[in-house]
């Protein structure tokens, strides 16, 4: 009896303690939800406000009613944009540039990453570091000399590159290739050596080893790199702003910011609708391929 009493008195505080810890954790969780809701509201407010304004008519916007509410929702802004030849040209230019940039980037960076991670050769270590350093050079440092370079190129050869959408196909790879090469080096390095040794012993050429073994095995990395290259190409603003000026050569980011804003009329509804449509492709990719997107984002610092 006494022993039993002793036992309960010994276990009771411990249990109470555990209860307190669980209670603490429950409260911590509750506070976490409260603050996360606030942060999420902050994060989602601009895109939501884009939608709210995009659904309004110019009359409703200029009437200065409650800006956070739509009294007469209409899709007219979206319909108008999606039937406007100019906006569709922007969209087409953006899509063309982004897709071709992805193709060029992959064609350059996948073989290069393979060579740098598997075929040690003279200067390969220096080159790998150089690739990484290139990634750290911002486009704001290069746009002026590049602009002058392309102007000189025209004077020499007569080939006009400035104010042509395809000039972006030369410029965007400087932003995408270094990072994609870098993360592909990381992915390739994680493939066991035995795999390519076996292939080489079986008589596969280096090219076959790359296309038949490395690319299929590193497919998640390639998808992550593709998403990265696409979103960078889609979002770029400085290069198209500096290098293209004619309306039919503009991409979405610049087209919306310059042509729609310049019009004097009150068309914030249309600007916001356009911005939302322009943000849609990366958002859709992100929604469906979030894990790959995040893998590509964190690979730069966690791998390598």
């Amino acid at each position: 009896m006494a022993a039993e009493a002793l036992q309960t008195s010994m276990t009771a505080p411990a249990e109470a303690d555990r209860g307190a810890v669980a209670g603490d954790r429950r409260w911590a969780l509750r506070w976490a939800y409260v603050f996360l809701t606030l942060f999420a509201a902050f994060a989602l407010m601009p895109p939501i406000y884009m939608l709210i304004t995009g659904l309004k008519t110019s009359n409703e916007i200029s009437a200065a009613t409650n800006p956070w509410w739509v009294y007469h929702p209409t899709l007219s802004n979206f319909i108008e944009l999606l039937t406007s030849p100019l906006f569709l040209t922007f969209f087409k230019n953006s899509a063309l540039v982004a897709v071709l940039t992805v193709v060029i980037t992959m064609l350059i960076s996948v073989p290069a990453a393979f060579a740098l991670s598997r075929m040690r050769f003279w200067g390969s270590g220096v080159l790998a570091t150089g690739v990484f350093l290139t990634y750290l050079i911002p486009e704001t440092l290069l746009f002026i000399p590049l602009f002058k370079m392309f102007a000189t190129f025209r004077d020499w050869t007569g080939i006009e590159l400035i104010n042509r959408w395809y000039v972006l196909l030369l410029l965007y790879p400087t932003l995408t290739v270094p990072f994609c090469t870098w993360i592909m080096i990381g992915y390739f390095a994680s493939i066991p050596k035995e795999l390519d040794e076996a292939a080489l012993i079986d008589g596969a050429s280096w090219t076959q080893t790359l296309t038949k073994i490395f690319i299929p095995v590193a497919l998640p990395g390639i998808i992550a790199a593709t998403i990265f290259a696409f979103t960078v190409a889609w979002a770029q603003f400085l290069y198209p702003l500096a290098f293209t000026t004619s309306q039919d050569q503009l991409v979405l980011s610049v087209g919306i910011a310059t042509t729609l804003i310049k019009a004097d009329v009150f068309n914030w509804g249309q600007i916001m609708a356009g911005a939302l449509l322009g943000a849609a492709p990366p958002l859709i990719i992100y929604a469906f391929l979030m894990d790959y997107y995040i893998a590509g984002l964190t690979a730069g610092a966690t791998k390598g």
Binding site: A43, M50, M272, Y286, M290
Partner: peptide
């Protein structure tokens, strides 16, 4: 995580337009 990363996914030039309007 999905919701909180949205600002990073939208092209900065376009989300800044929303801020300009805000």
């Amino acid at each position: 995580r999905g919701m909180l990363l949205v600002p990073w996914v939208i092209p900065p030039a376009l989300s800044t337009l929303a801020w300009l309007w805000l």
